[in-house]
Design a protein around this nucleic acid. Structure first.
Lengths: 164, 164
DNA sequence: TCGTTATAGTTACAAATGAAACCAATTGCA
DNA sequence: TGCAATTGGTTTCATTTGTAACTATAACGA
């Protein structure tokens, strides 16, 4: 019995998938690896989940969003956003006010503590992104950008993101 | 109050992330969208989870793997594999035998029913992949291949896949 | 202006996932 | 040999996540 046994392919007529060359699989691995690396930077240190960070990131970019708008921008569903927000508000990282003309809507923003954390985590995330892109040369980066644009254009509307 | 309110960027000094241009985020959305589309093809129809399908896919490609080898090839952790296998064996889709020289190891293969299902699902997955790649021209596909190779090369070994 | 329908958000419950402890068989080595 | 360390795999428990139902407010139409 050899040490690194590579079992022979199954019977020919079945045409099995070769996961290692299957685009959806490769994307999944790559995406999860990167997202997890970023998450590792802050999860324990700040007791912050990925969903929570994602919410904070959009609130850093756009102040005064409602929960639903946060859900749209993060591609999370509203329940996930609700849960993330209740933890963030609890932890004093996000302010939740009520919309003037509509008592159902919340008006969300980062607190001072929230901003402080944001300003530490955002650079770490950016650094990870740079580390990934550093594996590509300038030409490849341009193509990647273009390819992602085209691939995303095809997705009707349905989309969810789990990690970042 | 305009219909499609786009809140103004937060104060300048904070340098928030622009998720819509942030590579990890874009990859996450894209990957989850594609994986979910594939999963939608079989989840309800066959009462098959994504992890279960992933296990079946590698067993379709390599017969006689042990559970640990399946875990390696699917980038799932061994607990997830164990759970998927117990359901698959239960459902009569996978045979679990015991290795001759090592009573701890299992020797896994698809049953006839397992193969039948495999032969229906694999083409659907491939069709989805084709649909995605169809959005690119030949040159872009070549670059994508190359870029994925380089990006994946950078990942030490740690990697997990959730969806496919 | 009343009743229906739609929207924002939360709650409750079930299913999926992750981490650690665990069992059994095997290996390594004194 | 014999016993500690390792490996393959499962079980258990806590946490996370997804889905559906629910509350409250607002919008719409007769």
């Amino acid at each position: 019995m050899p040490a690194k046994r590579k079992p022979a392919p199954a019977t020919a007529e079945h045409a099995p998938l070769q996961l290692e060359h299957f685009l959806p699989y490769r994307l999944s691995i790559l995406s999860n690896t990167i997202s997890q690396a970023i998450a590792d930077d802050y999860q324990r240190r700040y007791d912050l989940s990925m969903t929570e960070w994602r919410v904070m990131a959009v609130l850093g970019r756009f102040e005064g969003l409602s929960a639903r708008e946060v859900a749209e921008r993060t591609a999370m569903d509203k329940v996930a956003v609700s849960r993330a927000l209740s933890r963030l508000v609890e932890a004093g990282r996000v302010n939740r006010d009520i919309h003037d003309g509509d008592k159902r809507r919340s008006v969300l923003s980062l607190t001072e503590a929230g901003w402080a954390m944001h300003d530490e985590v955002a650079p770490m995330a950016r650094a990870r992104e740079r580390a990934v892109l550093a594996r590509l040369d300038a030409e490849e980066r341009v193509w990647l950008e273009r390819i992602l644009d085209k691939l995303q254009a095809g997705n009707g509307g349905r989309a969810t993101a789990n990690r970042d």
